[in-house]
Every structure is written in C-alpha cells, then in structure tokens.
C-alpha cells in the first residue's frame, strides 16, 4: 500500500504562457521513456527479482509517480487557460478535439501509451540494465525539453527531475553490483 502526501515532490512554477512546451512535456507523461512507463516498469519487476533489490524498485517506482504528478502539474498550468486557437498553434489541436483540456497518456506526437514500452524479462540483470537505460533516456529527454524553453522557473523543476534520473541510474547500477553478489566476497580478505 501507499501513503499519499498531498504535495508535490518539488515545487512547479511556470512563469511563461507557452502551451507549446506542454506538448513536449507530454513525452515525459505518456512517452516510452516517460514517468508512467518508469513507474509501471519498476513496480512490476519487483515480483521476479531477488529480495534485496525489491525495496529499491518500490522506492524508485513510487518516486516516478511523484515525478508524473509534477509533469502533470506543468502541463496543467501551461494549458488550463489556453484558448482552442492557442492550443492549435501549440500543436495541441488534436488533443483538444479528443480530450478538451484533459491530459492523456500519449507521447508528444500523440501516439497512445502502450505496455509494449516496458519489459519484464524475469531475468534480474536484463531487467536492471533496461532500468538503467530507461533512466539515461529519460535524462536525455529532460535535457532536450530544457533546451526547448527559456522559462527559467520551468527549467528549474526540469533540472531537478533530470538530476533524479542520474541518481536513479546510479542506484540501479548498484543493484546490478548487488545482483552480481561479488561485493560480500570481496570484503572477506
């Protein structure tokens, strides 16, 4: 079970009316390397991985949902007061026609999220290396989104999220070392 705190992991402030960026942020919402994919991937892998890394997958998978909320908040702020015309100019015309101002799990090109984005190979090393790759891809995606906006407040929140990807990749790399299980033997000199 989970305990929910009704606040964001990190403050989200958007100081420029720029719905164009909302479209790009959707990539981290329902894209292949987005936060939804990350959360579901990690939480799902817990049932076929050695006990000692289950907690890590729980912690990081949970944090990904906190990131998902931050992304949703950014998209919400950028689109909530936009007119249909503004949304259309931002490339979000099709989204408006289908969802009004509603968020949907698709990528920045409008392709709906699919479970095919995530894998559960059942092999601990294969799964963990996928997780490391996913974190680095998400880090890169954050870089390219940061490059697309000159809103320094939005950049600030995105830089926080980018750094978290780096820390997560670090932790998954450590999980690989634990799975390899040569750390304990090394200590017995």
């Amino acid at each position: 079970m989970w305990i929910y705190q009704k606040k964001l992991q990190y403050p989200v402030r958007v100081s420029k009316c720029d719905p164009r960026v909302a479209r790009y942020l959707v990539e981290q919402y329902g894209g292949a390397d987005g936060e939804l994919s990350a959360a579901l991937r990690y939480l799902n892998q817990r049932y076929s991985i050695p006990d000692k890394v289950i907690g890590l997958l729980t912690d990081i998978g949970t944090e990904e949902f906190a990131h998902l909320e931050m992304i949703a908040t950014m998209i919400y702020k950028l689109t909530k007061d936009a007119t249909p015309r503004q949304l259309e100019e931002a490339g979000l015309g099709p989204n408006y026609v289908i969802h009004d101002n509603g968020l949907f799990y698709n990528n920045s090109s409008g392709v709906p999220w699919t479970a095919a984005y995530i894998q559960a190979k059942g092999d601990p090393l294969a799964d963990l290396y996928e997780d490391i790759a996913a974190e680095e891809k998400a880090r890169a995606t954050y870089q390219w989104i940061i490059d697309m906006t000159d809103d320094v407040d939005l950049q600030d929140s995105l830089k926080f999220l980018r750094e978290r990807e780096i820390v997560h990749a670090m932790r998954f790399k450590e999980a690989v070392e634990m799975i390899k299980a040569d750390r304990d033997t090394k200590k017995v000199f």
């Binding site: 420029k16 940061i146 906006t149 000159d150 809103d151 950049q155």
Partner: peptide
Amino acid sequence: YESKCRPGEA
C-alpha cells in the same frame, strides 16, 4: 545542465 535556449529565444 544549462538550457541551449537563450532568454527570449523560445
């Protein structure tokens, strides 16, 4: 990481 987007450029 610093944005490649300069102020006012977006």
